[in-house]
Simulated assay, not measured.
Amino acid sequence: MVVNRMILNESSYFGKGAIQEVANEVHKRGFKKVLVVTDKDLIKFEVATKVMDVLEKAEINYEVYDGIVPNPSIEDVQAGVKACQAAQADCLVAIGGGSPIDTAKAIGIIVENPEFADVISLEGEAGTGKPALPILAVPTTSGTAAEVTINYVITDTKNHRKFVCVDPHDIPVVAFIDSDMMMGMPKGLCASTGMDALTHAIEGFITKGAWEMTDMLHIEAIEIISHALRDSVAGDQDGREKMALGQYIAGMGFSNVGLGLVHGMAHPLSAWYNTPHGVACATLLPLIMDYNKEFTGEKYREIAIAMGVAEAAEMSLSEVRDAAVQAVKQLGIDVGIPQSLAELGVKEEDVAQIAEDAARDVCTPGNPRDVSVEEIIMLYKSML
């Protein structure tokens, strides 16, 4: 008998202006001191300051830790833990994309579970004993869904690797999905994070752990994202509103069933070359979809129908699988995603070691088709 588990936020707020509820949640939960976790650019461009203004208006005491960088490192987390302890904060307000929210998760876990202060011991399912310091998450990108997942990713810079942590104790207690916070995204970031969201939805839909409830979420997310992403990248407010919802729905699903080889192969690229995670996923997605297609039953037909592929319902299974892959590839081309790993700076001499890292990644075993290191090498090289 298979027992499936669903873990979601305690509360979530959706829509323009949702960040106004941050102060109400802080007061309602009795928090006295907030540590805002964000990055310097979000402060510089007055994105994070929108939330800080809400805190100030409500006379909520807070301090800021803005030492977050893309692909946050062990050292970034440890500095954040020190900042949290120095501030004597009793909650975290994480503002940003996956990097600030992931860092906040690690900070919150370690503050309450100091035996994991080395950070590296959190890899995989660490078995922490206590919930993280409460996290209120405000995403500023439409992609990672970090605000609703039990996963976070940290970079071990010394060993050129990213590691995934999976912990029900790290999920933010409240999420605020406000498209106004996402309007400042440049086109490139909007495209890469949006394609990351599509990757979450597609990988979650075909992963070995998928089941009826997550299938329902993922197919809806695929439909929303594939129809809204082009408009979102063009800067359309309605498109960004829909993307904010689509990426969250995808997160509700994949957080509970895992991902696959796209993420397994993308994580080492970020660790080795500092490639933005969404770009790495988006570049690899059509290739790995094609690799997996014979192991997915009728699911590519459902993907094709959700993406609006003409006559997908009447095509043969072979035809519709190819059509689904092509629809995803064309979407990536339309929003400016690189179509080769050479464009990401990948070097052929590094591929063997990168493939070893990908094979060990926690996401890889969820792939619907089992894969060897030799096959991963072949896949990387086919995109150089």
Score class of each variant (00 low, 15 high):
N159Q: 15
A48I: 05
G246S: 07
Y300G: 00
Y65I: 05
A323I: 08
L269K: 01
V335S: 02
A266F: 00
M52N: 02
K208N: 09
V173G: 01
I109N: 12
V77T: 12
M1G: 04
A117D: 10
M315C: 04
N24T: 12
Y248I: 06
A280T: 00
F116V: 05
L245I: 15
E63T: 14
V262N: 01
D370S: 15
L261E: 00
K329E: 09
L8T: 07
K242M: 15
K105S: 13
A234G: 02
V2I: 15
E223I: 08
Y248N: 07
S270I: 01
V328N: 04
N71Q: 10
V93K: 12
T140H: 03
V166I: 15
I68R: 00
D236Y: 07
A87H: 11
E314P: 00
M182E: 01
E223H: 11
N159P: 08
A228K: 04
A106R: 13
G235L: 12
L384F: 08
I206M: 11
V279K: 05
K82G: 09
T296K: 05
A234H: 08
K162D: 03
S12T: 08
E349G: 08
G235E: 11
T193H: 09
M213R: 07
Q353H: 14
D361V: 04
R360M: 14
A146L: 06
A312W: 08
K158M: 05
M52S: 00
I225R: 08
V279C: 05
G80Q: 11
V148Q: 06
D180G: 02
I177L: 14
S382E: 13
S316P: 00
N24Y: 07
G15W: 06
E314D: 14
V51Y: 03
V362S: 11
I107C: 09
G96Y: 07
G253W: 07
K105R: 06
K33C: 06
S270N: 10
M183C: 00
H160W: 08
L331N: 02
V148D: 05
G30A: 06
E349M: 05
A324P: 01
E63S: 15
R5K: 14
I171W: 02
A197V: 10
A234R: 09
A126L: 12
E374K: 11
S179M: 05
E241A: 13
G17A: 09
M6A: 09
K381A: 05
T283E: 00
T283L: 05
I150D: 11
E302T: 03
L284V: 04
H263V: 02
R301N: 06
